[in-house]
Nucleic acid binder design. Sequence first.
DNA 1: GATATACTGACGACCGTTCGTAAGGGGTGA
DNA 2: TCACCCCTTACGAACGGTCGTCAGTATATC
Lengths: 197, 197
Amino acid sequence: MSYQSIKQEALNLFAIHGYEGTSLADIAKQVGIKKQSIYTHFKGKDDLFMQLLEDSFTNEIKIEKDYIDSSYDQTLKEVLWQALESFVYRFQDDNRLKFWLRNTFIPPQHLYEEVINQLYQYIDQVDLLYVDRFQHAFDKKEITQEPAVAGMAFSALLDSIGVELIYGDESRTSRKLQASWQIFWLGVTHSDKTSRK
Amino acid sequence: MSYQSIKQEALNLFAIHGYEGTSLADIAKQVGIKKQSIYTHFKGKDDLFMQLLEDSFTNEIKIEKDYIDSSYDQTLKEVLWQALESFVYRFQDDNRLKFWLRNTFIPPQHLYEEVINQLYQYIDQVDLLYVDRFQHAFDKKEITQEPAVAGMAFSALLDSIGVELIYGDESRTSRKLQASWQIFWLGVTHSDKTSRK
DNA sequence: GATATACTGACGACCGTTCGTAAGGGGTGA
DNA sequence: TCACCCCTTACGAACGGTCGTCAGTATATC
């Protein structure tokens, strides 16, 4: 079924070259059809793009939710580190995450509203998941810093790894991940009571 | 002189809409001339873009260097916090930083090599500046973690703030900056003993 | 025959770029 | 002072391309 093929190839191309950098002719060529045939399955370029965005949104939310929900019997340290590792792995292995990151970061101008709307939904939902998980760890005295603060800092850590992944230098990504993680974990488990911001 | 005007307006547009999202006609319109007139001053779109990139590169390097060089009599904590604040301020105030971040993050495909080359030069030089500064602070026992690790972690912090700035939610940027900074500073000053400062 | 799918052909719009030309100012020599 | 040339700057017209899109048609399946 070329409906799926079109989606697959479009996802790959949009992930690498972005919306403006990918033409319908490029997509059709990858699938092995003519660009006009895309209109049999989609209303147009915007429709195709938005369907992919919604798919990715649903997919990313589900992955995060499943992972966090099934993580309450592990230690927070394990959970977070694995989350970081799987983030790196999925970025390199699967174009869906790359598509999501790239096109929410730099959306096509005329679809900005709709894209950013989905992005904010995603951020809110994921943040909620993490805050709950951090609260749980805080109650179990795994961390000493407030769950909201620790959650925000972890979210920032994920962002910075995303940046590094897009920049593309693997060894640098690895070093930065190691360093950030080390400092982060020391920070959230800090025990000096006299310390304040 | 419209040479400067073209540069100025092109910088603004490239910063907001990116390379592909900005046409020569758009730039010319902002300046108040026709698009053909741009060719009086520049070889073409690529030439204009690359000149802006080099300007921004030089500018960013100089700002960082001047700031770090003149910071050795302040405490590291002050220096880093001010660096973060001025990063946020400059991003919102001046399009040059926005241009630099956006177009090194997502460069036009056919200029990828040249752009990424400049970016790596920038990263290397800035990292060097920071590592030296962190080493200085380490020697003065302002931090407990290794300078290279602390520097990397701080660089990651900057990246994550950059992401948040581009996402555009101001209150969220502020909260994330606060949280990340708090965790970061606790992390780099972490000690096994529960000693007061 | 109805339906789903993919094609040919063509469209208007916009893209970056080139060419020839016109306007303006400054310096020069008569 | 004036006429001349040069050089910079800007523009109209047009080029070859690519873009997303649409209408009409052919083909295969059931």
